[in-house]
Design a protein around this nucleic acid. Structure first.
Lengths: 361, 361
DNA sequence: CTGTTAGCGCATTCAG
DNA sequence: CTGAATGCGCTAACAG
């Protein structure tokens, strides 16, 4: 069905049908005829061709690293909220953390009928920068800082620092408890992520180090591991740490997901080392039995994982807010032609700070 | 940048540029010129216009009810796998369980340049059927049975029945244990979902009832609740059941997510009812203390939730497989013009059947 | 091998 | 108010 056929059937010109569809001048009489034919045929105009003509799609493309993630779904929920309120629709492209696919989908959106693109960023490569610089449709980057596009990101450094201080306060021997605390597990370990992710892998971790340092504690390289953004990877990294180091008091993780894996590891490890049941060469038994004292922290305030983590100290970022602001930024550019570049940094909130009050058993 | 401008700059015709882009005959000499100009200008052809012309986008649209779900991400992973292998890209539209949005996005895809649509189905309304009947681009429905489109669904009835039998076997007094078992908690409760979801809300539940019945057990209406597809909703439904009924031995849930919520509820409930600490009017204490004996089952084999559920009996559906088969079906129609309608039912596999062997404590 | 020509389906001039 | 004509950017025939 094309507009021409409809016009023929209704005995009018295609222009009349076009006007009918878009609210132009059409006599009541012809309106009736056209309406009738359209209803009969179930005709739907090709958005495709319309956009070719009008260069306006009322559509934005969102490129995400993966689909099954609470933080990402919060961001897209924010985006969708403002988009639908303003009469736009949202298309998602998931890249499965593959930078090549990410570029491919960015280009897809650039050449398809979308009015703008939002990239939920993880690693920004040279290719990305090149794209951002040359894109002919406006792009907003959410979750990472970049100077090549409007961006809106979280204060990962600040959050890391706050967490570092919190951890330090929990690990430092109290004036009151004195000598005794010194003998307990007191080392801080950290499970981070690839430094290619500037926000999580660099800022967050550097912030954490800075927070510790401000309280006089150094993060020992031997107590640091790197994981993927999965529970399973967190599990393995934690198990590795537990096996190697027997004096870890607090295990800080770059994300709640990793933390959940780490907690699993601690539980598994302790279960398999009940004295008299399993024995390893180093006589580690005692440490293992004590490992309920290992406290775990995360980042992200993952609601879904609360059941697993049981409310560990974590940081709440305004993921949904970043989606909202990101979409607003984009629409400002699309609709009002806003030209002034924007970099927006969003704050955070520490959650479950009770780490230093209650020993979690 | 249009193909014409490039042609002018390179001193050739637009057709030559088009051929250069699409691998037609171009002399080495002109190839050079064109290549140079394209590189200088960073020209990218408008996929938009190309598709208008060729009616081929190498793109399929996938409509999903929500983004943050393990089962759905497994399906899309399957789809993406075959699509990318066959040179297609995938666009996602999330409807947030809003039937109106679902229709809106289906129509969007119908009129935008996609070669086909995959709908991950939940509730199929009359509007849906109307769309499926009239769509001008091929549609495959995954996860629900429908006669209005090619579909690929899971054997929810069979799975429910198998689970029903398993539950029945665990609840029925053993010949060996005899009289004693009769006195224990022995009622079966079920938390289902809306019957508008034919697969999960009807087939799965009816199957479950049939499974119980085949072993001589009826599912009492008073022991049935309905929940949303969330942990929180499962939590509330379970709490309601626990408060009302004190003789539940097995609590079967329509999804692992609901089951995870139910487990939370059981833990919370029992914690708050330690004898001597809290007392309610009915002298329920004893039951509460025994509620570690309430066994929970789910459906879906959610890997992510294993940490919470600790390996309860559940059913593994081939979600990824359904995505793979669905995409293949769609491509058959798109590329080979396959016209014969297909309905494909996928099997299942019971997981963690140990329910009747080991009392989970 | 190459350029010219003619649309894809639609919206928008511009004369009626 | 209305229809004929034009072109969005590209590809596919076609005749060189």
């Amino acid at each position: 069905m094309t507009i021409k056929e409809i016009a023929q059937l209704a005995g009018v010109s295609s222009a009349a049908v076009s006007r009918y569809l878009n609210g132009g001048y059409v006599s009541e009489e012809k309106k009736e005829q056209i309406k009738k034919v359209i209803e009969e045929t179930g005709y739907q105009p090709s958005a495709q061709a319309r956009i070719l003509r009008t260069k306006k799609a009322c559509l934005v493309g969102v490129v995400v690293p993966k689909i099954n993630s609470e933080s990402i779904s919060r961001v897209t929920a924010g985006i969708e909220q403002v988009l639908s309120r303003r009469g736009y629709q949202m298309l998602l492209a998931s890249t499965d953390n593959d930078p090549a696919k990410e570029i491919a989908y960015l280009k897809l959106f650039e050449n398809y009928p979308v009015d703008g693109i939002i990239l939920i960023g993880t690693v920004i490569t040279a290719e990305h920068r090149k794209f951002l610089k040359n894109s002919r449709v406006p792009v907003v980057v959410v979750g990472q800082y970049t100077k090549y596009a409007n961006c809106i990101y979280h204060d990962d450094y600040g959050a890391g620092k706050a967490m570092g201080k919190l951890v330090a306060s929990a690990v430092k021997p109290d004036a009151a408890s004195g000598e005794k605390a010194q003998q307990e597990r007191s080392k801080v370990a950290y499970i981070g992520v690839t430094r290619e992710d500037r926000a999580v892998g660099v800022s967050r971790e550097e912030g954490f180090r800075a927070g510790l340092k401000s309280e006089g504690i150094e993060l020992d390289a031997e107590y640091v591991r790197q994981a993927e953004f999965t529970m399973d990877s967190g599990y393995r990294a934690a198990l590795d740490l537990l096996t190697e180091k027997r004096d870890i008091g607090i295990l800080a993780c770059a994300t709640d997901t990793i933390a959940a894996g780490a907690i699993e590891a601690i539980l598994t490890y302790s279960k398999s080392r009940v004295p008299g049941t399993v024995k390893d060469s180093g006589g580690r038994m005692q440490y293992i039995l004590e490992n309920f004292r290992i406290r775990v922290t995360g980042f992200g305030d993952n609601q879904f994982l609360k059941a697993v983590t049981g409310g560990i100290p974590t940081v709440h970022f305004g993921y949904k807010t970043s989606g909202i602001r990101g979409a607003e930024l984009l629409l400002d550019v699309i609709e009002r032609g806003e030209k002034i570049p924007v970099e927006m940094k969003l704050g955070f909130r520490l959650v479950n700070e009770k780490i230093n009050i209650k020993n979690n058993k």
